[in-house]
Amino acid sequence: MQTLKVISLPIILGMTLLINACQSVTTKDDSLYHELGGKEGISRFVDVFIYEIGETEQVLHYFEDTNIQRFREKQIEHVCLLSGGPCDYTGDEMIPVHEGMNITESDFNAIANAMIRALDKVNISLSARNQLLAIVASMRHEVLYK
């Protein structure tokens, strides 16, 4: 009964190969933009995202002086651009806009959770969700403890 050995070794090797394969993935193409439902889908997602942030008491104080209409507009542009869509982002740069906020790791994750709930509610596929979260995660160092 050496089955487990026989099964688990190829799994480990196979996944190791897959890791290497997915490191070369670039976001130049617009497939994620389309998976998110284009401009319309992204707008729908951002609306729910803002609602979900509103439900997250832990982070509400960061948004006390935020112009929600502008925030919505810039979020849509940003997600559109990041997902490879045909948009320009005209909002603030990440580092200066978060300066002085001292956003904690826990706060960042609370926003990430709001984002996940929103993606869930507008029925974005798990694949598109993970791609978007990976992009957002890559910007985390521009946001945290500034």
């Binding site: 897959l18 890791i19 993935v25 694949s127 598109a128 993970n130 791609q131 990976a134």
Partner: peptide, 9 residues
Amino acid sequence: WLDGPFHRN
């Protein structure tokens, strides 16, 4: 990896 094989973590 958040966006690993099959776009899974």
